[in-house]
Design a protein around this nucleic acid. Sequence first.
DNA 1: GGCCATATGATTGTCGACAATCTCAAGGGA
DNA 2: TCCCTTGAGATTGTCGACAATCATATGGCC
Lengths: 218, 218
Amino acid sequence: MSELGELEPITRRSTAAIIADQLRSAIMYGSLPPGSQLGEADLAAKLGVSRGPLREAMQRLVQEGLLRSERHRGLFVIDMDAADVRDVYQARLAIERAACQLVMQGNRGEALATLSAALEGILEAAASRDRIAMSDADQAFHQALVACSGNSRLVRMAQTLLVETRMCLSALQAHYPEPDELVAEHRALVDAIADGDERLLLELIERHMLDSIDRLNP
Amino acid sequence: MSELGELEPITRRSTAAIIADQLRSAIMYGSLPPGSQLGEADLAAKLGVSRGPLREAMQRLVQEGLLRSERHRGLFVIDMDAADVRDVYQARLAIERAACQLVMQGNRGEALATLSAALEGILEAAASRDRIAMSDADQAFHQALVACSGNSRLVRMAQTLLVETRMCLSALQAHYPEPDELVAEHRALVDAIADGDERLLLELIERHMLDSIDRLNP
DNA sequence: GGCCATATGATTGTCGACAATCTCAAGGGA
DNA sequence: TCCCTTGAGATTGTCGACAATCATATGGCC
């Protein structure tokens, strides 16, 4: 959080990082749909940069696994099949389960405050019945959960997995839980943290992920 | 494995990927020690490429978290403190624990064959009492373990974490387990898989990681 | 003598151009 | 009619050069 009136350099982040964020966002929200090719000249013109920095940014996404590279063919947004959906949620379970354990044996009070706020966000989104807002709030909650673990590696991994999660939802465009259910599931997680019930928390997060796999695989 | 006499394009992987591998390897083995700056012109000359592809490769490692970028200053190999060591092993535990579960509920037979071979490698390395060979075999074992999960996301994450693990060992240059202990610990893992004892397997992998944290933090 | 401003050198960030390769369509032959 | 070859067009891969920024050393001023 930046202080009020604090003077900072205008560009403290590298251009490649900014472009990578833009592309990640575009992929996440389905603006660059799975399987689509990323023409370098085209994109560079749209973003107002040269091909150099753009290529650097794209290499980041290749490393993340969001793009696949075919030599002399171009870069394509990955398209996810059922196996990918399974992999993503299994990996999310691994990360978030570990995050839950760390939260429990770490600063639980601070985590509780952060996650209560995130839960409030889900509540508002659910009230508005806006699917995208709900997804945003859902993602923010899980991002916050992992952030509370204090483990930067877990945070980085979770970010990519959450982007892929959004890709699934955008692509499949279905089977997203009802607002009430969404709120209830996350409230249960927060309550378990509040009660200090690690056993229950781990069980809930496991169910949360495994249910999602079932929901997305008809 | 490529067939004998099979004709394949000489360069099927992108140049950036090859360079990234080289750099990753150099970082892993301590050839590029933590904290050291990566001069672009210098490296490009050594690798026989231009700065363009080199910069692309470096962006991959930035995304991986192996390099940190300071704008207009350059790229530096991350240096790991005690907190980083903890984070890496916590993350490894998360990934490898999940991999173990997937192995147990997946093709256990194939995993057993692969891991038995990997264990044989550890045995040979331990016999030679060559520290580097032991580390290589250790890493290969855990890489194989995660690969047996069949989850490509877990594999990618594990790769980065294993590189960071090697960085710790190269940097701290100490507290690596005795050959006998190394063999015993991994044999126990394989045995647990052979017996189909998931409970024990998870307990062992947990101990394996948590012990490592203690060992590296005096 | 100590400290600040300036100049210099080196390094990074960005760009445009050229070469290599792929895609796709048109043409010729069986 | 179908298939292979061949050519044009477009796209990617690579490179060298220029601009912007930072680090360091030098000289002047207090």
